[in-house]
Simulated scan of single mutants.
Amino acid sequence: MSDKQQVLYDVPGPKAVRRDRLYNVIFTVAIIGLVAWIVQAAWARGVLDDRWQVLFQGAKGFDGWDVWKRLLWDGLVMGTLKAVVIAVPIVAVLALVLTIARQAPMRIVRWTAYGFTHVFRGIPVLLLMYFGVIALDWALLPSVVFGLVVYNTAVVAEILRAGIAALPKGQKEAGLSIGLSPLATMLRIQLPQAIRIMLPALISQIVVLLKDTSLGFIIGYVELLAVTKNLYNFFGSSSIAPLVLASAVIYISVNMLVARLATWLEGRMRRSPHIAQPADGGDVAAPDLAARAAFGAGGGGGGAR
Rank of each mutant, 00 (worst) to 15 (best):
L98G: 03
V155Q: 08
L215W: 02
R121F: 04
A294D: 03
F27L: 12
L225T: 15
E173F: 01
L140M: 11
G216R: 01
R19Q: 15
R196Y: 06
R21A: 15
V85P: 04
A241T: 15
V93F: 12
A87C: 05
T213K: 05
G175W: 01
P242A: 09
P14W: 08
Q193V: 04
L289R: 15
D74E: 14
L96G: 07
S181F: 12
G301Y: 10
A59V: 07
L191D: 04
P287A: 06
A290I: 03
N255L: 10
G132Q: 03
A285K: 12
V244P: 01
I108Y: 08
L48Y: 05
V150P: 01
T99Q: 05
L265R: 08
D63E: 07
L202Y: 02
A104N: 11
V208R: 10
M186K: 04
Q190A: 05
V254G: 02
Y251N: 04
I218A: 13
V258M: 15
T228W: 00
Q5L: 14
I219N: 05
S204N: 15
I26K: 10
A16K: 12
I38A: 11
D66Q: 10
A184K: 13
A162D: 01
L148W: 00
G13M: 02
L257G: 15
E266M: 08
G33C: 07
D63V: 02
A157F: 00
A279P: 03
G163H: 00
L167T: 00
R51V: 02
W43V: 11
T228I: 00
A95W: 00
K211A: 12
L34M: 13
R21Y: 14
D50M: 11
E266A: 11
I189H: 00
L126Q: 08
S204E: 06
K169C: 08
A291W: 10
L183R: 14
P124N: 02
A30M: 14
W37N: 11
I90N: 00
R70Q: 15
I218P: 01
A135G: 07
D20P: 07
D66R: 10
V156M: 12
G64N: 05
P142A: 02
